[in-house]
């Protein structure tokens, strides 16, 4: 078990559990909705809950997070309302994006969620610019971009790391290495043995961390956020994690990996380990944890109800918001 940092209050630890269990229950329900045909094109984040949870535990509303095609967990960890998220998945007018973005583009600027992005690696330069805006405006807010091991091979990451380093920008590059870019294994596609090692070429710290441990994530992200806030520049974090589902709804992950490998990671499940920590430290009882889980299930059910009962966008929404103004 990870040694606990002195900064992790029991309140924060419980928030982390509550966040992770909410993500998991949300994703399980979204999967059920997709299987029943009510939703399409989901990229499930089950298994990766600890990564954004450990990072976002250090963030404020005026810090920004930018994500990927697989970003429900980033959104929930950053505090986006799950009712509005579910409504967005249903394409409803009450969704975070008024039903115009869907699963791959959820954004809520008031919560500092500056958007999921469907193009692999595309958000990394944008996040770098968000950090630049903070620096130019003399704010101590930080920008965090999550991306996968697939994006680690995009030029956009390398250009952004270089830019962030020469300008000492307050940005965290957080790679969720879930071992697969769609069906392509990381050991095939990523030269060398590490994404984190690539930080060295850009003169910034590169850290590898157990992404299945919320506590380890919390520890590593805490240092990186503090560095960024202090004006000391960017950090690259490689969180080693695992996606339990396939890349999207219809693919069978066992067509490219073994059940033994899946079991290895499930034996190190981030939610289970957080539960164990809370119980062992006496932070919570089993009843407490069951109650939090039950609340998460109920909140997700309420989100589905909200989404079902919400109206679809009106037809004129098709052509609104293309521009702020056009002639």
């Amino acid at each position: 078990m990870t040694t606990i940092t002195s900064e992790l209050t029991s309140e924060k630890a419980l928030w982390m559990f509550e966040t992770m269990i909410t993500i998991r229950r949300f994703e399980e329900q979204a999967r059920r909705e997709a299987d029943s045909g009510r939703l399409r094109g989901l990229h499930s984040s089950i298994g990766q809950e600890a990564v954004p949870t450990g990072v976002c535990a250090h963030l404020r509303d005026d810090d920004y997070v930018l994500g990927t095609h697989r970003s429900h967990h980033h959104c929930i960890a950053k505090g986006v309302d799950i009712r509005e998220m579910m409504a967005e998945l249903f394409g409803k007018a009450t969704g975070t994006n008024k039903g115009k973005g869907g699963t791959m583009h959820i954004a809520d600027i008031n919560k500092g969620m500056l958007g999921a992005n469907g193009v692999v690696g595309s958000n990394i330069p944008v996040a770098t610019g968000v950090a630049l805006a903070a620096k130019v405006q003399g704010k101590d807010s930080v920008s965090v971009v999550f991306f996968g091991d697939g994006a680690a091979n995009q030029g956009s990451l390398h250009e952004s790391m270089n830019l962030a380093s020469i300008w000492k920008l307050p940005v965290l590059f957080v790679c969720e290495n879930n071992r697969y870019a769609e069906s392509t294994p990381v050991e095939y596609a990523v030269a060398g043995t590490s994404v984190a090692n690539r930080a060295e070429g850009y003169a910034m710290p590169g850290v590898t961390v157990d992404g299945q441990s919320a506590l380890d994530m919390y520890e590593v992200a805490g240092e990186a956020v503090a560095r960024a806030r202090a004006g000391e520049g960017p950090t690259l974090i490689e969180a080693q994690t695992y996606r339990y589902m396939g890349h999207f709804g219809a693919d069978d992950p066992l067509s490219y990996r073994t059940p033994e490998e899946e079991q290895y990671y499930k034996d190190r499940d981030c939610v289970d380990r957080m539960k164990a920590y809370l119980l062992e430290t006496g932070t919570a009882t089993q009843e407490d944890l069951d109650a939090i889980d039950k609340e998460a299930v109920e909140a997700v059910a309420a989100a589905v109800k909200f989404a079902e009962e919400s109206p679809f966008p009106s037809p004129e929404e098709l052509t609104t918001d293309v521009y702020v103004s056009y002639r």
Binding site: S143, G155, S156, E159, L163, W167
Partner: peptide
């Protein structure tokens, strides 16, 4: 230098950064 920035030859990086800076309150 804070407001007038020479960039590396890195268009995806700095034009993308311009997009992010714009979304976060600047007018690049």
């Amino acid at each position: 230098e804070e407001r007038v920035r020479d960039t590396p030859i890195s268009e995806a990086g700095f034009i993308g950064a311009g997009v992010g800076a714009a979304a976060a309150g600047l007018r690049p």
